[in-house]
Structures are given as structure tokens and as C-alpha cells.
């Protein structure tokens, strides 16, 4: 296959990444954000693996054919991106593990995993602190307006 369709795995990689990125930005549920992050990173794995393909290539393993005399001499796919992505998968699993650990702790501390509810509770905390005279900041409103914009 040639042309734009011939590189369809690259289209899938872009699509996966965009879905992931959208989820990370737009979903208020923290678990959904973690899933979206996983999707985003999976897109990148697909990209690396697609990059390794060589026309007519096969797995880079030396195979002896039947009588043992002949060896397949290639072409082989590039094994390096596969190795790299093994590492990246481990990294992405660790990221997901840390994210889930944090979400469990957030659930324990706040009783919810919806970002907007958590935000409202933090605001209420801040007002309580203000009334106790601990914090005097009008300025934090600026930050929260920016944050609101960012998560919109």
C-alpha cells in the first residue's frame, strides 16, 4: 500500500494520542484522566513500533531452516525501537501505579474523585482559613481563575 493509507498505523497513533489528550484535559473524573493518560502513552508505543518496520522484514531472530544448513539472512525489522518501547511500557505502568496510588489517597482525604468537587472543597477550606485569620490572600483568586481556565 502506498500513500496516506499505507501508513495507517501512524493515523491510529495520532488518533489514540488525541483521544488521550482530550480525556486528560476535559474529563473531571480522576480515574478517567488516568485512563486517558494511559491511552496517550499507548499511542506513542504504537508509533515507535511502526517506526521499526522494514519492507519485507521479519522478526530479528536467526532461524535455521529444516536441514540446518541454510540461514535466513534478512531483511529484519529494526529491533531497537522494540527494546526502547519495552522500557517505556515499564515506565508507563509505573506512572499509572503512582497515579492510582494518589487517586486512592485523594479518595480517602476528600471522599470523591471528581476534580470540580475537590476544587470546591479546597475553596471552602480556604474560606475557613480566612475566617480563622490564618490566610489573608486575595491573590489566590488570581491563581484559581487561571486554573479554572486551564481545566475548562
Amino acid at each position: 500500500m502506498t500513500g496516506a493509507l499505507g501508513i495507517y498505523n501512524y493515523w491510529i497513533y495520532v488518533l489514540l494520542m488525541m483521544i488521550g489528550l482530550y480525556g486528560v484535559i476535559a474529563k473531571p473524573n480522576l480515574i478517567k484522566q488516568a485512563i486517558a493518560l494511559g491511552l496517550f502513552q499507548t499511542g506513542i508505543f504504537l508509533y515507535y513500533i511502526s517506526m521499526a518496520v522494514v519492507d519485507g522484514g521479519t522478526a530479528p531472530v536467526w532461524t535455521t531452516i529444516l536441514d540446518g544448513a541454510q540461514k535466513y539472512e534478512g531483511p529484519y525489522d529494526n529491533p531497537l525501537p522494540h527494546v526502547l518501547i519495552l522500557t517505556a511500557i515499564v515506565v508507563s505502568v509505573s506512572v499509572l501505579a503512582v497515579a492510582l496510588a494518589l487517586i486512592i489517597n485523594i479518595k480517602r482525604a476528600y471522599g470523591t474523585i471528581e476534580y470540580d468537587e475537590i476544587e470546591a472543597m479546597d475553596q471552602a477550606d480556604k474560606r475557613a482559613d480566612y475566617q480563622r485569620g490564618q490566610v489573608t490572600d486575595a491573590a489566590d483568586d488570581v491563581e484559581h481563575r487561571q486554573e479554572g481556565h486551564h481545566h475548562a
Binding site: 480522576l30 493518560l37 496517550f40 506513542i44 497515579a99 494518589l102 485523594i106 482525604a109 475537590i118
Partner: peptide, 20 residues
């Protein structure tokens, strides 16, 4: 302060996107 958790998670998400 429990906000450390949300601060950390947000850094995790933005940081991972950046690293990706």
C-alpha cells in the same frame, strides 16, 4: 495539607504529557 495530593496528581499528569 491534603492539597498536596491534588498538586502531585496534577503535576503527574502534566509532567507525563510533557515527558511523552
Amino acid at each position: 495539607n491534603r492539597q498536596a495530593l491534588t498538586a502531585s496528581l496534577r503535576y503527574l499528569i502534566l509532567g507525563s504529557v510533557g515527558a511523552s
